[in-house]
Design a protein around this nucleic acid. Sequence first.
DNA 1: CTGTTTGCGGAGCGATTCACTCCGGTGCAA
DNA 2: TTGCACCGGAGTGAATCGCTCCGCAAACAG
Lengths: 214, 214
Amino acid sequence: MATRNDRAERNDRALLQAARAVLAEDGAHASVATIAARAGVGIGSLYRRYRTKEELFQRLSVLSLEHWIEAAEQGLADPDPWAGLAGFIKDSVEFGQGTMAPIAGAIEVTDEMSAKSRRGDDLLDALVRRAHGAGTLRPDVTVTDISLMIEQLGRSPLVDQLRKQGRDDLLPAATQARARLITIALDGLRSGSPDRLPGDPPGEELFIARWAPS
Amino acid sequence: MATRNDRAERNDRALLQAARAVLAEDGAHASVATIAARAGVGIGSLYRRYRTKEELFQRLSVLSLEHWIEAAEQGLADPDPWAGLAGFIKDSVEFGQGTMAPIAGAIEVTDEMSAKSRRGDDLLDALVRRAHGAGTLRPDVTVTDISLMIEQLGRSPLVDQLRKQGRDDLLPAATQARARLITIALDGLRSGSPDRLPGDPPGEELFIARWAPS
DNA sequence: CTGTTTGCGGAGCGATTCACTCCGGTGCAA
DNA sequence: TTGCACCGGAGTGAATCGCTCCGCAAACAG
């Protein structure tokens, strides 16, 4: 029917997907021209849908937060506390939650964003508490440790760069290599690890501060 | 005595240190103006010492590789194979070896760079083989896995961004938080981990390709 | 103390890139 | 065929890039 709307919707999806990819590759200086080109869409069309670059990134943030919430809910739905937590971490890392980090502080946080962020934090908190209760998660690990790990593993310099160089042939190998790292890290999260974690447990203020305007 | 040379040398050190810091914060689009300003040095002075931006980055690469080699030698000097490897990994991550990744492919690789890189690879290989022989390192982990882990942990988006925002008060907490992640990852590297690592072992071609000109 | 040298900081240069505007063209709806 | 909604991308001023050049001050030789 509405072939016009169909196309518009397809363009919108392509734009958001391209924005995520370009953000991962170019980091903070991702340009709208690159995003539009990657989406196969004119710059003019991008600006009809989003009045400004910031608005596009805000929309992208909301979508990422929604994915994050959904993944946490799925993890809680798993009857096995450890499998639920591990699946959530794997999903978040592979989805690329960490790619949002470069724009933190550079865009204004909308009410919708902070609401969804709070909701996600609560879910993750429940997920971690449940794993602690079951005794499968090493007791000295905190929620912030896990958030930090997801962010740290979520940006793969190697994958980003290979993509930028157009070495798409090596991409599967690089992604697989990262999957191995995730497994290693997850094993380190299990109970019964030999070393005590050093230092004081990190607080939430680390993650709150970064979204403050610079 | 040679107060002139003294000052020049101090400037040079400040430049290199600033270059490393700015590279960590701004990534690929680190500008010479920013580097000079951070070092408290005029742009003109920077260009007396290094004919071009590329030359500065090449020098920085050599110094990083030298640190990498030295850390590996120290690790091999440790009589305990596991402690030697773990210390090497910790040192490399905290030194920030990963911050060099953004300029890979953007600068030409000098002969000195590739020679030192080869030397470092050999040392790391020996370090890993020794740990495997002692049985303390999980057998399915390869040298590439470890290189990748160092790079992945070596860039801390959180630390970089907090520094960019001038929240120096939170820096110690953020660094400490990363130290916890290193411990977790190291525990995951130990023998006796429950999960087999997924996928095929990654090959070296991943790291070789990235230094090729795009 | 004087004249020379040496390294210094930063204004300025052309080229490039940025986010964003504006308009002629295209193809669907009637 | 006519009207028009939407599209792509050339164009715009501003900002930033790597780099050059020059006036200046301090350290040297005499």
